[in-house]
């Protein structure tokens, strides 16, 4: 039971950091428009606070991922590390006035199904762990 909470909090934290990074990237980029291949664009990117939110998200996700991998099975961890597409989409509706159009929803469903398949594939490959618990297949 304790283990279940550890995973839940760990995966939730991972998704939160990843989501924070993507939303911050969007704000940083929008703030720096127009896109130009020069120093002025870099200054616009690094001159606003958003980019630092993205860096915090990346660093936080990295350390969460590393400590999760020490204890959690790789399959679910892999899947959780990519499922931020869903949370980012939902947040975009609220923050950026985007819409859950049919292509987006269909695309997201296919991508999430694909990520779940890849997570299952990882689980199967790493099944015989030293740990006594049976890995969730």
């Amino acid at each position: 039971m304790k283990r279940g909470w550890f995973y839940l909090i760990g995966f939730g934290l991972l998704m939160t950091f990843d989501t924070l990074a993507q939303v911050s990237f969007k704000y940083a980029g929008t703030h720096a428009l127009p896109v130009t291949a020069d120093v002025a664009w870099l200054l616009r990117v690094f001159g606003a606070p958003w980019i630092y939110g993205a860096i915090v998200g990346y660093v936080g996700a990295f350390f969460t991922w590393m400590s999760l991998l020490k204890h959690a099975p790789i399959g679910p961890a892999f899947a959780a590390s990519h499922l931020e597409v869903v949370s980012v989409m939902l947040l975009s509706v609220w923050l950026f006035d985007e819409h859950l159009t049919l292509p987006r929803v269909l695309g997201a469903v296919a991508i999430v199904a694909g990520i779940v398949c890849l997570g299952l594939a990882e689980s199967r490959e790493h099944e015989p762990e030293a740990d006594g618990d049976s890995a969730p297949a």
Binding site: A28, A32, E98, L100
Partner: peptide, 11 residues
């Protein structure tokens, strides 16, 4: 990401 909607970007 600054040139596309964020939903499309992450997908």
């Amino acid at each position: 990401l600054s040139l596309v909607p964020l939903s499309d970007g992450v997908l």
